[in-house]
Simulated assay, not measured.
Amino acid sequence: MAPTTLKVSNRSPKKPIKKLPSSIEITDKTTVQDVKNQLAKQMGGMDPNRLGIFDTKNKILKDRLSLVSQNQEVMAGKEILVKDLGLQISWLTVFIIEYAGPIFIHLSFLLTRRYIYHDYSPLSPSQKLSMAMIVLHFIKREYETLFVHKFSLTTMPFRNIFKNSAHYWIFSGINMAYWIYSPNSYAARTSSTVNYVDAAGLVIYVFGELSNLHTHLTLSRLRSRNGTERGIPKGYGFNLVTCPNYLFELIAWTGMLLVSKSLSTVIFIILGWAQMHQWAIKKEKAYRAEFPETYKKKKYVLLPSPGAVIKALVG
Rank of each mutant, 00 (worst) to 15 (best):
R189Y: 10
P183H: 14
K150N: 04
H149V: 07
G173I: 04
I139S: 02
Y186N: 14
L107A: 04
F158Q: 03
K140P: 03
R141H: 15
Q127A: 01
S124A: 12
Y181G: 05
F138R: 08
I105Q: 00
K128D: 11
P122C: 05
S192V: 12
Y120Q: 10
F151R: 07
L146C: 11
N175P: 14
A187Y: 09
Y168C: 10
L107K: 04
W169A: 07
P125K: 13
F138W: 05
S152F: 07
S191V: 15
M131S: 09
E144I: 13
I105F: 06
I116G: 08
S152R: 13
F147M: 00
A100I: 15
A177W: 01
T190G: 05
R141F: 02
K150Q: 07
N184W: 14
A132M: 15
I170W: 08
I139D: 00
I134A: 03
G173D: 00
T154R: 15
I170E: 00
K128Y: 14
T193H: 09
S152P: 06
M131G: 06
L111I: 13
L153R: 14
P122R: 11
L146H: 15
F104C: 11
N160P: 08
F104N: 11
L107T: 05
M156W: 08
K140R: 14
F147A: 03
F104K: 14
M131T: 15
S172Q: 10
G101T: 15
M156E: 01
A187H: 09
F147C: 06
V148L: 00
M133L: 13
H106P: 03
M133V: 10
N164E: 04
F138S: 00
L110D: 05
H167E: 04
A177R: 02
A100Q: 11
Y115P: 12
T190Q: 05
S172G: 12
L111E: 09
N160D: 02
